[in-house]
């Protein structure tokens, strides 16, 4: 069972609820962009028969987008969730 220990780390006895929430948001944001990058890369590879160039490229771009999203999330003086 993979998810059990994974989820147990989000126990209610965590020191700060908001810190946990921020961590959760960052994690989700990174995971989501990475997944979208993967999906686009995979689809482009299938279409253009360029496996695995597009996949690799878009994983990197996905990671970049994730970092950008997290930056927008955390950057001071900005609205939550970007511009």
């Amino acid at each position: 069972m993979d998810p059990v220990p994974d989820d147990a780390s989000k126990s209610p006895s965590a020191p700060s609820l908001s810190a946990m929430g921020v961590g959760m948001r960052v994690g989700v944001e990174l995971l989501a962009t990475l997944m979208v990058g993967l999906a686009i890369g995979w689809a482009l590879d299938r279409w253009l028969h360029t496996s695995p160039i597009m996949l690799a490229l878009f994983v990197v771009l996905g990671g970049g987008a994730g970092v950008m999203n997290v930056w927008r999330l955390m950057a001071p003086g900005r609205m939550p969730g970007g511009k």
Partner: peptide
């Protein structure tokens, strides 16, 4: 890229 790709393939 290979590393990233293989990681991605692993994930998928």
């Amino acid at each position: 890229w290979q590393l990233a790709a293989s990681a991605a393939v692993l994930l998928i």
